[in-house]
Design a protein around this nucleic acid. Structure first.
Length: 951
RNA sequence: GCAGGGGUACCCGAGUGGUCAAAGGGGGCGGGCUCAAGAUCCGCUGCAGAAUGCUUCGCAGGUUCGAAUCCUGCUCCCUGCACCA
């Protein structure tokens, strides 16, 4: 009697795999490669359900690909630099290195307990000097090729984190990590010129396998817009105002220009005018406003006339210059040409300040513009232009004509703007990669020579609550160096790199993780990275930052000649969230902590309902993976996670479903007991079971190939069991077929629940572990379709007999106990086959069908004519909502009918099973017409649809 | 406001023109097994009905011989961006 015992088998198989080094993989050009990667974790302590889900998906695919004969690279590491460790060190005392390391130890133990099949030799932690020295090495490369820039610029500063932030890390003017407000500060900072690659980053999105919403987010973020930069000379001044617009075709409708209050020209223009005071007030207000206030107050657009005029370069018209609170200094040129007739925002502004609104585009060709009271923002035909040659032009033609005129007169040019900014990557923090530069009073800012790398973080730094700022700055040994160029005393740069830098190339390092002389070797990288990482799995929260930076790195490193590939990830899967029930007030639309379950809403006193929400500490609806593993074992947790929903979809945690999955594991495993129960070599259901298995294996492959894991698991862990149970009930299988079946099934169980599958496989006496097994093509047999169709027909018969029996019993005085089955007469089958052939030749049954049947031999018998005609119509025309039967039969059923299999014999062979299944005492079967027509059911008999009479 | 994704039975969730009253799971109900419970196996789970008919896939229209599936409008939910010129 075998019993499923995860506590015993899981650790055992984990150690067997480890001993055998089963998951180590190296370059082998004789095999196709598969690079399966998950976003590596920030080691914050223990693994949570999000990790479990992410890595269970990846592991099942990695194991599946190995089964299929791929050389699989499946590594794991830790994104271990960053603020949390530094803060923990500060509050508890100690060093971030120690905090980080102990966290890594515990998360590694969790990963191992789940049985994930990583090549542990490649494990890396970005906070180790062996890793970050290559960060520095690459940074020097960036510097050599001009991608590094140090410049003074207004930057986003977070007071709580005491560091600057990249644009991507500011959400609603708040710090992405601590949510405190971000302020602008003028500082000298390090930038990576990512905008050099803006076009490529945008264009290549079209060809990569990212989910649509991720592509959309990246497109938005890069934000390329085509248009023109137009120069408006300031009257009585040397200055011109450059304004970027996407709508040069509206140039003749410009009635004012607006500068952002921060624009340097503002001060200069307004000085000495009577509007100066008013302008100062606006500028101060904008500078002071918190983001929260801005969002609320900016519904009101405000502006101040600066007292000066500008010239429209094409019309020569004088137009007023305003400063407006809605113009952003950092986008385009910080100046906007305003066309109130064709831009709703300008329209509102013009109405408020009583500025003329002039329509210069018409909605319909050759007509006057119609729109009143609001802006017409669509494309239109130019009209009322101040110069000849423009009226009547539309859309792109109109834009191009204006740009050409501007360029000819040196008053502007075609221009493309990006919302994407260069990547500000310096941070004023300790726990990150030191930027490898020194500041020398004589030589300036000088790179550390390559041979002096790594610039290591000192371990003898003491962290405490009282210290603020970056402790590197006060670490004399670190800071004081000699200049590599002149040998004089110099100061080391104390800024460190944004931790997103670390994760921008870790997938490349994994390919050659033990390389001590270079970040990675060219041949090795070109093998593993050909076509990119084949499957990359992670959370949607990295849709912009990490994924954009990694794409940028790959392209930049390619241009250094370090790799062939241009796009790092060929297929990205963003796994959905793991949700769990949480108290919810539908009137207030608020979710509450699980402590309030069953209580009333604190705000409105209504009884709280429940809805599913992302697992989070703040709601208290988390489930601990460790507790679940302890209770059910890793395989059950994996099964639940993978069967709960397909990877991209959200899933709900359900205790009862986990338990149900655990029972399923027991059921599957106890199937092994059949081996001892079966003594016959062959059994009646052998060929059916084999046919069914081949079909299942094929669909399982297709699902796994496409990462539709839920569908695959449904086949491997549910359908396969149901099928075997059916075969056993239908007469059983022989020991030889059973052995073969269980062996193949074991491989299907392996990706999702590997420990149980290995145990299963070894119980069967197979010498090779599944970890080393490569499976063969299922080779679907030609006869399979007939075998399956015949059994399918029997299932249908039982289903409809059950259904009809229920009805019959209501009509009968006494309980029914006898079933008479009248199978199809030959002529009906012959006629159906003829109709099938006609359908194949695209015969028009509507037009020619009646004539055809009337000339047919079966129609000669006058007594049968009514039935023939009725049957023929059902076959070929059907009724109002259903088409004729020749069009609705499955291919397998058609094949079965054409094979002229003996339906009567087939049913007779299963009589006792049918009697059992529908609970009747006796069954008679004969061809309609060869016995009494019981209850007049003979006329219902048709191929695969016998007439049934209950008595 | 813009962009992306959604609304399918008690719940979750598959399903992209006919084979769909709609897979699978959870839950519920009934039956077999059992002294009994659990586990397990079988069945039922829109309404009516001797094999058929009716109603149903967010709401309202439309295309079609035929719509969960295609088109139009509306509505609600989620996610991201948001004065981007």
């Amino acid at each position: 009697m075998v019993e499923y015992n995860p506590d015993v088998i899981e650790p055992r198989w984990q150690s067997i795999w480890k001993e055998a080094e089963a998951f180590n993989s190296d370059v082998d050009s004789s095999k196709p490669k598969f690079y399966c990667l998950e976003m590596f974790p920030y080691p914050s302590g223990h693994m949570h359900m999000g990790h479990v889900r992410n890595y269970s998906i990846g592991d099942s695919i990695a194991r599946y690909r190995r089964l299929r004969g791929f050389n699989v690279l499946y590594p794991m590491g830790y994104d271990s630099f960053g603020m949390p460790a530094e803060n923990a060190a500060r509050s508890k005392g100690g060093h971030p290195h120690d905090v980080t390391w102990s966290n890594i130890e515990s998360i590694r133990a969790d990963l191992q307990r789940m049985g994930f099949s990583y090549d542990w030799r490649r494990e890396l932690a970005t906070s180790n000097a062996e890793y970050y020295r290559w960060n520095q090495w690459i940074f020097l490369k960036f510097y050599e090729t001009g991608l590094v820039e140090r410049r003074t610029a207004p930057v986003n500063w977070c007071n709580d984190c005491e560091t600057v932030l990249a644009n991507e890390q500011v959400k609603n003017n708040r710090c992405w990590r601590c949510s405190s407000e971000v302020v602008q500060k003028e500082m000298a900072q390090w930038f990576l010129k990512m905008t050099t690659y803006a076009d490529e980053l945008l264009d290549d999105l079209d060809d990569i396998g990212f989910p649509e919403h991720v592509k959309a987010m990246q497109r938005n973020w890069i934000g390329r817009s085509h248009g023109a930069e137009i120069h408006f000379p300031v009257v009585d001044s040397e200055h011109t105002i450059a304004a970027f617009t996407t709508r040069p075709d509206t140039i003749f409708g410009v009635t004012f220009v607006t500068l952002s209050p921060e624009h340097p020209l503002c001060e200069e223009l307004v000085e000495g005018t009577e509007q100066e005071v008013e302008f100062r007030a606006l500028a101060d207000e904008c500078a002071k406003l918190t983001e929260f206030e801005r969002i609320n107050m900016l519904r009101e657009k405000k502006g101040v006339f600066l007292g000066r005029m500008a010239l429209n370069p094409l019309s020569g018209e004088e137009i007023p210059i305003y400063a407006g609170n809605f113009v952003i200094a950092s986008y385009g040129t910080g100046a906007v040409m305003a066309v109130p007739a064709h831009d709703q925002r300008d329209h509102e502004f013009a109405q408020k300040y009583d500025i003329p609104i002039r329509r210069v585009l018409s909605e319909n060709e050759g007509e006057m513009p119609k729109t009143e009271g609001k802006a017409f923002e669509g494309l239109g035909w130019m009209t009322g232009s101040a110069r000849d040659g423009f009226d009547g032009l539309y859309g792109d033609d109109a834009k191009q004509a204006v740009i050409q005129a501007l360029e000819a007169e040196n008053s502007g040019k075609g221009s493309t703007q990006f919302r994407l900014k260069d990547w500000l990557l310096s941070r004023q923090r300790f726990w990150g990669t030191p930027i490898p530069f020194v500041h020398c009073t004589k030589c300036g800012v000088i790179p550390v020579p390559e041979e002096d790398l790594p610039v290591s973080l000192p371990l003898d730094v003491v962290f405490s609550e009282d210290e603020s700022g970056n402790p590197l700055a006060s670490h004399a040994e670190f800071v004081n160096v000699t200049c590599p160029t002149c040998g004089e005393d110099a100061r080391r740069e104390t800024d460190t790199m944004d931790t997103f830098y670390d994760s921008s190339w870790y997938f490349l390092r994994f390919c050659d993780a033990m390389n001590e002389s270079a970040p990675y070797d060219r041949n090795t990288i070109d093998y593993w990275m050909e076509g990119g990482v084949d499957l990359y799995i992670g959370g949607i929260e990295h849709a912009i930052m990490h994924l954009l930076y990694a794409r940028f790195f790959t392209k930049a490193l390619r241009d250094f000649g370090m790799n062939e590939v241009s796009e790092p990830f060929s297929r990205l899967v963003c796994q959905g969230m793991v949700n769990a029930p949480t108290p919810y007030c539908s009137s207030c639309n608020v979710e509450y902590h699980v402590d309030l379950t069953g209580n009333v809403c604190p705000q409105c006193d209504e009884i709280l309902g429940s809805r599913s929400a992302k697992m989070s500490k703040s709601l208290g609806n988390t489930v601990s993976p460790e507790v679940m593993i302890e209770q059910y074992g890793a395989d059950t947790v994996r099964l639940f996670i993978l069967f709960g929903s397909n990877p991209e979809a959200g899933m709900d945690w359900s205790d009862s479903a986990v338990e149900a999955n655990h029972r399923q594991m027991h059921q599957i495993f106890s199937i092994l007991n059949l081996i001892d129960e079966i003594s016959d070599e062959i059994g009646p259901m052998d060929s059916w079971l084999a046919a069914k298995r081949r079909g299942n294996l094929r669909s399982w492959w297709d699902s796994m190939d496409d990462v539709r894991i839920r569908e695959a698991v449904m086949i491997s862990h549910f359908d396969m069991l149901t099928d075997l149970q059916w075969a056993m009930r239908r007469g059983g299988v022989g020991s030889s077929e059973l052995k073969k079946h269980l062996t193949v099934w074991g491989t299907m169980l392996y990706p999702a629940t590997p420990h149980m599958a290995e145990e299963w496989n070894s119980y069967l006496g197979n010498e090779i572990t599944l970890a080393e097994t490569i499976i063969d093509d299922p080779n679907v047999d030609e006869d399979d379709v007939l075998i399956l169709a015949e059994e399918g027909a029997l299932k249908n018969l039982i289903d409809s007999a059950r259904n009809v029996k229920g009805l019959a019993e209501r009509h009968s005085e006494k309980p029914v106990s006898r079933l008479v089955i009248q199978t199809t007469p030959d002529w009906k089958r012959e006629l159906l086959i003829e109709a099938l052939d006609l359908a194949d030749s695209e015969f028009d049954f509507m037009r020619e069908g009646t004539a055809f049947i009337q000339q047919h031999a079966v129609f000669a018998d006058e007594a049968k004519r009514g039935e023939v005609m009725q049957y023929w119509r059902a076959l070929t025309i059907g009724s109002k909502k259903t088409r004729g039967r020749v069009f609705t039969l499955r291919d397998s059923e058609k094949a079965l009918i054409r094979s002229k299999h003996d339906e009567t014999a087939s049913i007779k062979a299963a009589i006792s099973f049918i009697a059992d299944a529908i609970d009747v005492k006796s069954i008679e079967v004969y061809v309609a017409g060869e016995g009494d027509d019981i209850s007049g059911k003979a006329r219902f008999a048709a191929p695969l649809l016998p007439g049934l009479a209950f008595l």
